[in-house]
Design a protein around this nucleic acid. Structure first.
Length: 168
DNA sequence: GTAAGGATTGGC
DNA sequence: CCAATCCTTACT
C-alpha cells in the first residue's frame, strides 16, 4: 500500500472528502502496534464563509492549522471529553478541513478519537511524514451516500443544509 | 479575570 | 431527555 502524499489533500475539500471514503487510516501506537482502519464517513468544512466551520470565527490559536496547507492534522477537544480528528485540505490561507466521522468498526467521531488515542500532540501532525498517523491509498468508492452535516444547526439553514456529509 | 457553550456519547 | 467535563472564545 502506498501512503497518500500531502498533495492529495491540497485540493478543494469538496473533491478530497468523498475520495477519502474507503482509504486506509494507519495508526502506529506508542507500544509499536500498527492498526489499519477503512474510513467510512466524513464531512467537509469549507472556508471562512462556512458558518459551520470553526475557521468562520477567524484565525485563532485553535484554527491556525486550517489556514496552512493541506496534509496536516487538526484535532480539538469537544464537550470536554472527545478528540475530533480532521485533515486540513486546500492550500495556504484557504481554511478547509475534512472531519473524519467514523472508521470501520467504530461509529461516531468521539469513539474514533478514543480508539486512536488522540490528544493535543497530534495538532499539526504532518500526514506526509508522520511515523504514527498517515493515510494509505485504496480504490475509490463510487456508490457512497450524501446528506447534510451533523450537529451544525447553529450555523443557520444555508450552511447547515449543505450536502457535505459523505458515507457508505 | 470570568463565563458560556460546543462538528458527542452513553446512561437514565 | 440530559449529564459528563474542559478547552476555546468572547466579554468585562
Amino acid at each position: 500500500m502506498k501512503r497518500l502524499p500531502n498533495k492529495f489533500f491540497q485540493r478543494d475539500v469538496l473533491q478530497v472528502a468523498p475520495e477519502l471514503l474507503g482509504k486506509i487510516l494507519v495508526r502506529c501506537f506508542p507500544n509499536g502496534t500498527e492498526k489499519r482502519y477503512a474510513i467510512t464517513e466524513v464531512e467537509a468544512y469549507r472556508g471562512a464563509e462556512d458558518l459551520a466551520c470553526h475557521a468562520a470565527k477567524g484565525r485563532t490559536v485553535r484554527t491556525t492549522v486550517m489556514f496552512g496547507e493541506g496534509g496536516h492534522v487538526y484535532v480539538y477537544l469537544i464537550y470536554g471529553m472527545y478528540w475530533m480528528l480532521n485533515f486540513v485540505t486546500s492550500t495556504e490561507n484557504i481554511p478547509q478541513a475534512v472531519l473524519i466521522r467514523s472508521i470501520e468498526g467504530f461509529s461516531g467521531p468521539g469513539r474514533l478519537g478514543r480508539e486512536l488515542q488522540l490528544d493535543k500532540t497530534f495538532y499539526g501532525e504532518n500526514l506526509g511524514i508522520s511515523d504514527r498517523l498517515w493515510i494509505e491509498d485504496a480504490p475509490v468508492i463510487t456508490n457512497y451516500q450524501i446528506s447534510t452535516r451533523i450537529g451544525v444547526d447553529y450555523a443557520g439553514d444555508e450552511w447547515a443544509g449543505k450536502p457535505w456529509r459523505y458515507y457508505f
